[in-house]
Every structure is written in C-alpha cells, then in structure tokens.
Design a protein around this nucleic acid. Structure first.
Lengths: 330, 330
DNA sequence: TTGTAAGCGTTATCAT
DNA sequence: ATGATAACGCTTACAA
C-alpha cells in the first residue's frame, strides 16, 4: 500500500501538504492540490485508518448490540443502523449479546480501545450501572430502555399509545371483555409498564372494568401462546378478545385455536405486538402493533453521529410513533 | 487509557518486557511476568489496537457482505459468522450491499486499509474479476457462488442433491406430472444449474419425462407465485405438483390457491426452497428444502480464520448437505 | 503557502 | 532475561 510519503514524493511536495489535501484544509494552492489529488489517484492511495486512529482521529465505526440478528425486529434495526451509518461514511460492527452480560460488556470495550466511536445498544443485558462507566469513553445510545437518570439518549417508541390504540381498536370492534397478556408482571417498571398503562387507560376511558383473571403474565413464547389459548377457552367466564405482548404468543394462540377448532376472531379475537413476519403469514392474519424498528435504527444512528460531531443531543427520550396494523384476527 | 509505558513504569520494567508478557513470549522471568500482569490489572490496561495494527498486526476483525440482514437466510448466516468469530476473539463488521456493486467494492476496501483481516461474501454483486484484485490484500471466502477458477474457497450447499431429494419426495408421494419453477433460465450456469440438474436427475431416474410447458423461468417474488398459480390452474394439461425455487414463490402460490379455492396438496402439491419462516406459518405449511445458513456462516468463518492463521485452505468447494423438510403442502 | 519534526502506542531488532 | 531504540503512517504545532 502506498503511504502518504509516496504520494508526497510523487507530487514533489511534503507529507504535510498531502495531509492538508486529504483533510480538506485551507492553505494549499490550487495547483498543488491538483498535483496531490493526481498522485493519490495514480497510486491508488488510501489513508491508513490505524495511523489516523493512533493520532486520535475518529474510527468511523460504530457498534450495535442486539440480542440476535435473527430476530426480525433487531434485524430491521441493525439494517437501518448499517444503512444510515454507511451513508455518513461510517462502518458498523455487530454484537449479538445472546443474553450474555459479559459479552455485552466485552463488546463495549471497543469504545475503550478506540475501535468504535460510539455504541448503540438495542437491548440492554446488564444493569445500567454496569454500563454507565463506559460512557466516558464514547457516546452510547439506548433503545427501548428506561434508565434511572437520563444520562444518555434513549430512543423509544411509544408503547403506551401503541397499546392504547390496540385496545381501543378492540373496543371499537364491539369487545367489552378484553384480556391482556404480557411477558412481565403487571406492575413491572419500564417498557411493560407503559403498555400496561395504555391498556388501563383505554379500558378506563371506555368505562370498562378490568377482570384480574384475564390478566396473563410471564408469557413469552409460541408455546406459551398455545397453552394460553387452551387455558382461556377452558374458562367459564372468559374474555372475547385478548391483547398479547408479542406476535409470537399471538401466533401460538392462533395455531392452537386452529387446532382446536376455535374460530378467530368470532370465538376469540387475538391481537399481537410487533408486526413480525409471522403476523402476515399466519391464518387468520394477525392484527398487531407495528414497532418502528427502521425508524429506531435510523434515529439512534443519527443521534449518535450528532453526539460524535457536536457532542450534544437531547436527553429526553425520543419517542417514535407506533401504528396499529389491522388484519383478520380481530 | 493507560498505555504500555504506564504499565512498564508501575511494574518497574521496560516497555519491551511488558510487550513480551502481553504477547505471551518467552524469556520473561516468572516473577516479572506476575508483576506485569498485576500492573496491567491495576491500571485496567488494554493494548491499543490502532497501534498494534499500525505495527502490522491483525485487526481481529472480519467483514461479512450480505444483500440485506433482514433476509432470514442472510440473518442466520450473519448471526453464525458473528458467533463463530466472536468465540475466536474476532469482531464482525457487516455490509449490506443491497444490490449495490459500488458499496460492495467500497466495503472490500476494509481489506486494503487493514481494517479487517478477511472478508466473507455471502452473495456476490460484482463480477468476480472486479473482486479478485482485492484478494491480494487479505483472504476472501465466498458463499454459494461459482467462479471461473477456484482462486478462493467457496462454501456452497449441495443444491443439486437438495433439489434431487425434493423431486424424489414428490415422486414418492405418487406424482408423475411434476412442474419446476426457477428464478433463472433453465440452462443457466451456477447455482441454478445445479438445481436444474437435480430435477433432471430425479426425473430421469424415475423414468418420468419432463414437459417443457411445465418449466417456469424467471419467477422470483410472492407476486410471481400468485400469478403462476393462476396460470397453472388454467392450463388444460397441467402438473399435479410444482417444485419452486423459493419459499416466497411457493407462499404466493399457496396464498393464491387459498384465494381461489384450490386445495393444496390435493389439487396441486407445492414445494418451496429455503425453509424461511414463512414456510412454517403459511397454511398449509410448506414442504421445502432447508438451506444450512448457520452451517455456511460457521464454515465460512472457520475457513477464513484458517486462512488467516495458516495461510492455506481447501480450494475445492465445501459442500454442505441440505435437508428436505416435509410439511403439509405436498 | 509550505515544510520540518515530534509524537500517538505498539512491536521487532539489536545490544547488553 | 532485559532494555534502548527505531519504525509503522499519520496529524499538528511550529518555523520559515
């Protein structure tokens, strides 16, 4: 590889002048600039990033931490990050934490060791107090998390109004007996709390009461969904609609409903959350809440670049709107 | 950040000795080694990768080029690459070429500029002759591609026997009138050729003749699938089963079949390719050929690390087996 | 407007 | 077994 010195020699100038041209600085005569550009082209010269980095430059690399790229939501988010970063000249490193706290922390060392300029954490594994210290080595942006004090920007989408819109939709369909299924406990903090509040708000506004027996907690998987469907249909006094915390659960419920001959939505309306690919392929197709993964990835990247270049950003959470996608299951 | 010099001072030794410890070299007394290790820990010292890189070290980073991480096949492949690389201490950069030749080439510059030690190209956008020159800057491994001379390792999966097994399965189900749908032309080179041969081989072995009217080329999307279903069902003399080149097409066909009241598999059996998530969610669930995305990602990473460390690898294509997944559509 | 030289944090060479 | 020193390729005072 040609070095800056090669270029300088060929152009009959000094390294300094070449460096000035590379970095678009002033005080280079037009003719010399042209000479340098010419030499660079002829030698197919590319500045060595390691050397620039060593001199304290930016790495032009950002990192993104996701639980797994195979999850469609995180795949979209990652895709958007890569795309947005690329357009600004940045490269993207990925880390799949796979629920591994140590891997997450190890990956954040990229910041410490100046291999990445900033980090986007799409899902936090560690407690924030264990991650916080990394912020002194470079900017971190969080997605969909609530942290004690807003010391870093957080990109969220509006779970409350998403859920609110979902429940309201069910009510408009004529449902009054609406169950609610969540991955967390009902009183939980954070993301799930917002959703729960959306549920409560919509029910309260419509003057509907919440039946505690129709609140199902700690359900996560397709399998959980299958069991839940069976459970619900076996209840004496049962809801006519269930709002679930994920498309996976909802898909499990629908699968089991088809199995048992339960008609969706006639016997039981089912709503998902996330608008994953399953949602459009399952029969009946699933009404669900769209999570703006693309938007979050874009926004997170924009914010981190802003932070990198101007060293400031809004610390109030960025709230992205979420839409309801009405299909056949409600 | 602490530097090697800080560690050296604290340990009361020279940079050189510290470097020796870092790199696990001989000729360091046990007590000094302990001293250095101690100092490193106390200072939370991490070698600066930029500096090491400048000295000609490996970057411990590999790149992976995919069309889009949102495609489930490439997401799995990427996930496997990241996972495998991580276990060996490597980080992974992603590039979504999005069908953009220039982006692909720009990304390969990472090799030139020593930002990545090696590259895995999961789907090639450019002609190989435009990529070939990059190989002199570092190892490249290709997935699912055929190139003129085998100058770099290629990881493929056995498309021929995958297709062969698929057709054979249809024959075992009693089908004799088997159509075949492909994205390319029937005589095409490469990947599709292998598949076509699998089709021909299975048909020939069963003594079945191929009806040219049942060969459908240049079909790619779900939409194409819908149209194809309509077309097939309108034929006077039509196949009883169609093997398609992708789950997308097959899913489109099934969707349209459900729409038109065509029964799958009774009126028409349909087979996909790829085992994408759609395949298990559509009704009836799709019989398809499993593409070993995980296996390819793993293998590609292993080969590239092998190449990096021992500078040699098999140039014969690595062929991964592919399985047939039998579901309800056949 | 241009050039000289120091320094970023490592590792390799050569002495000791 | 240990250490002094040069070199990797670049940017940035500082000088001219």
């Amino acid at each position: 590889m040609a070095t800056i010195l090669d270029v300088a020699k060929r152009a009959g100038l000094s390294k300094t002048t070449v460096s000035r041209v590379i970095n678009n600085q002033d005080y280079v005569s037009e003719e010399n600039r042209a000479l340098v550009l010419q030499a660079m082209k002829e030698l197919d010269y590319h500045p060595n990033p390691a050397a620039r980095r060593l001199r304290g430059q930016l790495t032009m690399t950002i990192g993104v931490v996701v639980p797994a790229v195979t999850d469609p939501f995180f795949a979209s988010l990652t895709a958007a990050v890569e795309q947005t970063a690329y357009e600004k000249g940045y490269r993207t490193m990925i880390c799949q934490s796979s629920g591994d706290k140590e891997k997450e922390r190890l990956f954040l060392n990229l910041l410490k060791t100046k291999q990445a300029d900033g980090m986007i954490i799409a899902a936090l594994e560690n407690d924030w107090k264990d991650i916080q210290p990394f912020t002194k080595h470079g900017p971190i942006v969080l997605c969909n998390e609530d942290i004690p004090e807003p010391s870093v920007p957080v990109i969220k989408f509006d779970q409350l109004s998403g859920t609110y819109a979902g429940i309201k939709h069910l009510i408009q369909q004529g449902h009054q007996r609406i169950g609610y299924c969540t991955g967390a406990l009902f009183a939980e903090k954070g993301r799930d709390k917002d959703r729960n509040q959306g549920y409560q708000k919509a029910m309260a506004e419509a003057g509907l009461s919440i039946n505690p027996a129709w609140i199902f907690v700690d359900r996560h998987t397709t399998e959980d969904g299958k069991q839940l469907l069976t459970h619900v249909m076996s209840m004496e006094d049962r809801p006519t609609a269930v709002f679930t915390g994920s498309d996976d659960i909802a898909a499990g419920m629908i699968t089991q409903a088809n199995e048992q001959g339960v008609r969706v939505p006639e016997d039981l309306a089912i709503m998902g959350f996330g608008n994953q690919p399953i949602a459009q392929w399952i029969t009946p197709a699933l009404t669900t809440i769209q999570q703006p993964a693309d938007g979050m990835g874009q926004k997170a990247t924009q914010v981190i670049l802003e932070l990198l270049h101007n060293n400031q950003a809004e610390m109030e959470p960025y709230e992205l709107p979420s839409d309801i996608i009405v299909r056949k299951s409600t």
